[in-house]
């Protein structure tokens, strides 16, 4: 495999600058086409439920992003234009702390976290070590194909802890361990990193779907840039006098 970090970073730089509407469009298209990608498969009711949940969350995330993350013009001083732009933070790793046995619920939540991170303009290294069922493979392939190459990378070979020590990492989205100490230990590990303080998004597997993915669940995945432009005459523009 070529350096997944470099590829992820290169993709983030492009994807992160897409307007929010465009990212919404990509993910909404994937959600709407997802049933057609798996229609040839025989699904268990649990699997169908998981897919429904992924679609529900994805739609919801898109709605939230559309509502909140389009550029905002901020009221201010005459002769200045202030805009607040929202975009991705960088590369997120997504994974579960307890990797002892596969769980459909965890898989679903990992996909939800992945979609949330992607929708906000990040690239994602999804860590999942368990064997995938056919529908899971189909789902991941279709998601990956609907996105620019390497924006989403699935890895089982890389070591989860090593991944979270990487200097290019900007955020971790993870499912907490059932043992709180293990989760605490992981967080301590993250705090030992040198360089920027990274974003941690954790999901408890005990909480309900609605509680985990609440109306502000996308905010940790988002980064803001404020652009202030002087519009007075000597500032280079001349809008004030033409009002």
């Amino acid at each position: 495999m070529s350096d997944p970090w470099q590829a992820a970073f290169a993709q983030f730089q492009i994807w992160g600058k897409y307007p929010q509407n465009q990212r919404d469009h990509v993910l909404r298209s994937w959600i709407s086409e997802l049933p057609s990608h798996i229609e040839h498969l025989k699904l268990s009711s649990e699997a169908q439920q998981a897919i429904d949940e992924i679609c529900l969350c994805g739609e919801y995330f898109c709605t939230l992003a559309e509502l909140n993350f389009n550029m905002q013009t901020l009221t201010g001083i005459t002769g200045e234009r202030n805009e607040l732009h929202f975009h991705g933070k960088g590369i997120f790793t997504v994974g579960e702390l307890d990797q002892t046995k596969p769980s459909l619920c965890n898989f679903t939540r990992l996909i939800n976290l992945t979609v949330a991170a992607l929708l906000c303009g990040n690239s994602v290294l999804l860590h999942y070590i368990h064997p995938l069922e056919k529908w899971q493979k189909c789902l991941l392939i279709s998601l990956s194909k609907s996105l620019p190459n390497d924006l989403l990378q699935l890895t089982s070979r890389l070591d989860w802890l090593q991944m979270n020590r990487h200097s290019r990492l900007t955020g971790v989205a993870f499912i907490e361990h059932s043992k709180p100490n293990e989760t605490a230990q992981f967080r301590r590990l993250l705090s030992q990193r040198t360089g920027p303080i990274i974003c941690q998004v954790s999901v408890s597997h005990q909480a309900s779907l609605e509680q985990v993915f609440h109306p502000e669940c996308l905010l940790p995945f988002i980064s803001e840039t404020c652009i202030s432009q002087n519009c007075t005459a000597i500032g280079g523009n001349i809008e004030l006098l033409s009002r």
Binding site: L84, T170, E224, T225, C226, I227, Q229
Partner: peptide
């Protein structure tokens, strides 16, 4: 975090120029 165009970069106005960086 903040980009100023033809504008002084040290006087962020509260509410109009939300302030804060990224990374380091």
């Amino acid at each position: 975090g903040n980009i100023y165009v033809n504008n002084c970069q040290t006087d962020a106005a509260i509410g109009c120029q939300p302030f804060g960086g990224k990374g380091l």
